[in-house]
């Protein structure tokens, strides 16, 4: 039986099949892996904040230094001071989790506001202003801008994430703007206006909630990947969480001193953690994008 939407000629936009049955299996695998990583990160964050760890991350064991993975008692081995690697990796999540969420929140909130302001009204001067702002933000290499802020204020992760959030605003704004301009040609917005619905309802419910939800989720995952990359890079460079408090970046840096002796594990374990996590967020964003956004309407 044909659905109304198919009769109305809008095939593909409202299909009877649920989205996971239409999706490419590769994309589903990406999303599955990404969700696994996100779950692990969130769980580890809570394990870390309630100190439910196999070992105290600061306990030094001079008998058992640089143990490889699979050592009895220490599944992921120990670092150059005999501290348990798994516990340190779990606690390392504390360094970026909440600050990263702040960066994502700033980017999504202000990006949405600017996107709506430049996309929804018929004609405003906002458009030029936002293009200018976007180009201005893109003119700075982010790391250089962050180093500037560090030099001017102090090497504080919250300041850094504020900058990361602000520099992501234009990306979100341009996506939202593009989406709104696309939606405005649709009949349902016209119908909304003809029905005399308040602008607030149209924007918040019909545009943002029903049609921009998935876009915002995708941007959130990509933003989180960026935040993790920035935090680990900066703590590697020495501007962030300081030893002995673990962060993945400073663990790689501290372990690197032993790299040339052929002892790879202390810096490789956190590097792999960074790899799997960032890859997870990226693939989640990509997969969701392919499933929910791009293949719609084809």
């Amino acid at each position: 039986m044909k659905s109304y939407s198919q009769i109305a000629g809008e095939i593909g936009e409202f299909s009877d099949l649920p989205f996971w049955k239409k999706a490419d299996p590769i994309d589903l695998a990406y999303v599955g892996y990404g969700l696994l990583i996100v779950t692990l990160v969130v769980m580890s964050y809570f394990l870390g904040s309630f100190h439910l760890l196999p070992y105290n991350p600061d306990d030094i064991d001079l008998e058992l230094m640089m143990a490889g993975p699979g050592t009895p008692g220490h599944i992921l081995g120990t670092d150059f001071m005999g501290r348990d690697m798994l516990s340190r990796l779990i606690v390392g999540i504390q360094a970026y989790f909440l600050p990263g969420l702040l960066a994502v929140f700033i980017a999504l909130f202000f990006g949405t506001v600017l996107g709506v302001l430049s996309g929804y009204p018929a004609k405003t001067g906002f458009d030029t202003g936002i293009t200018y702002f976007t180009n201005l933000v893109d003119s700075f290499p982010r790391l250089v801008l962050i180093l500037l802020v560090i030099a001017a204020f102090k090497p504080d992760i919250w300041y850094i994430m504020l900058v990361v959030g602000i520099t992501n605003v234009p990306v979100v704004a341009s996506h939202i703007k593009g989406k709104i301009q696309f939606l405005k040609q649709k009949n349902f917005i016209e119908a909304d206006m003809a029905l005399g619905l308040p602008t607030r309802t149209i924007i918040l419910k019909h545009i943002l909630w029903h049609n921009c939800r998935s876009l915002l989720i995708i941007q959130a995952t990509l933003g989180m990947a960026e935040a993790i990359l920035m935090e680990t890079s900066l703590s590697y460079l020495g501007f962030g969480v300081q030893e002995p408090t673990p962060s993945w970046g400073n663990m790689v840096q501290a372990g690197a001193n032993y790299f040339m002796q052929g002892k790879f594990w202390p810096s490789t374990a956190p590097a792999l953690a960074i790899l799997f996590t960032i890859l997870g967020f990226h693939l989640l964003g990509d997969g969701l994008n392919n499933i929910l956004e791009e293949k719609k309407g084809k």
Binding site: T232, S233, Y236, G249, V252, Q253, A256, F259, M260, G262, S267, T268, A271, I274, L275, I278, L279, H282, L283
Partner: peptide, 22 residues
């Protein structure tokens, strides 16, 4: 290429240095 791109570039640097010099 996705995996290489997600590798922290500083760690990749150490690997390359170690491999080439040692």
């Amino acid at each position: 290429s996705y995996v290489i791109s997600a590798l922290p570039v500083f760690w990749l640097g150490y690997i390359v240095i170690y491999f080439f010099t040692h």
